[in-house]
Design a protein around this nucleic acid. Structure first.
Lengths: 174, 174
DNA sequence: GACGCTTGGTTAAAGTTTGAAACAAACCTA
DNA sequence: TAGGTTTGTTTCAAACTTTAACCAAGCGTC
């Protein structure tokens, strides 16, 4: 099968995209490291928790929301726990599970540093985009996410299991 | 100064963008690790070299093209040199500099694995975008790059030095 | 209710990245 | 041309990521 190479237009778009994402991640990491003492990933872990019911999530759910592996999350949470920004809690319903819960101090850090973070994102991205471009960015990004979330396990080989992950059982109400 | 928070639209775009870039980098890393035995960054270092005159670049220029720090590049080149895909060469004109040059074996690896890489990029991105969206993606990405390359050194504090990096002196002709 | 499979989470070791500091060659200037 | 500065690169330690086990708790079933 002959390769479907990228067209000139696609190639330009691809290179610009790669450059943009790398520069952007670097810039955000630098800013957050400076102002919050942690890289972007760790910041968004805290942010994810802050939006969850009771400001806590099971490790697996948090990993999924953060799009990272569980082991990577374990390391991050250990570090953030040492810093006093996160607390681990046991799950009553499922003795295997454990929660990561945002502490008050963690919430405080988040509130203190959010403005600077938003400002960085604005300065790097949204201040330079028209409303129409913002919409396109969302469309394009979503298309990529769909394409990549669709495949998940590359080859189930036999029957296509239309398996749905059950929604987390014990992140329920008060 | 009151924070200019992201609008709902911007927030959706931002989250989709973050998710897309992370999933995409992961997918590409997995594929290249599998097929070429190296992560995306290392692959694009080789790719950058393959397009340079004489298939070689000074370390600093290569770092700049690859949008990474020099120390990160040093590590990567050391590894790729061990693998026999890159060779270091001294610079005659400036004894401080050194070149990284793509070996024939490196070129071969690139040629062998490029089709699979392109296929992955297509499957994740371009197969799902209209021509118009590709153009927007390029526009948007370029805007971000401009925003971030513009600032470089955050605060020259005193006078705005409109300093231009001189183009690499010894990546010239044969 | 013991076997086996799956899920939730951690650990250990190897690999990579970062950021600051070290070095050496090149440059500038009095 | 001696002294200080800039530039190109590397080195080192600490932080982070990955990969492949590992353990323990739930689940299914015979």
């Amino acid at each position: 099968m002959t390769t479907r190479w990228l067209t000139g237009k696609e190639q330009r778009a691809w290179r610009a995209y790669i450059a943009a994402t790398h520069l952007l991640e670097d810039a955000i990491d630098r800013q957050l490291q400076q102002d919050a003492g942690m890289p972007h990933l760790y910041y968004s872990i805290l942010a994810n928790l802050s939006e969850a019911p009771e400001r806590r999530l099971r490790m697996t759910d948090l990993a999924e929301k953060s799009k990272i592996t569980r082991s990577r999350l374990t390391y991050a949470v250990t570090r953030l726990e040492k810093d006093g920004l996160i607390r681990r809690e046991d799950c009553q319903w499922d003795k295997r599970s454990s929660f990561a819960a945002l502490t008050d101090e963690g919430m405080a850090v988040l509130e203190r540093t959010a403005p600077g973070h938003v400002e960085t994102v604005r300065a790097a991205v949204f201040d330079h985009l028209s409303e129409e471009q913002v919409e396109r960015l969302e469309e394009i990004s979503s298309a990529i996410v769909r394409a990549l979330e669709g495949e998940e396990t590359p080859r189930p080989t036999s029957d296509e299991v239309p398996w749905r992950r059950r929604s987390s059982p014990c992140s329920g109400s008060s």
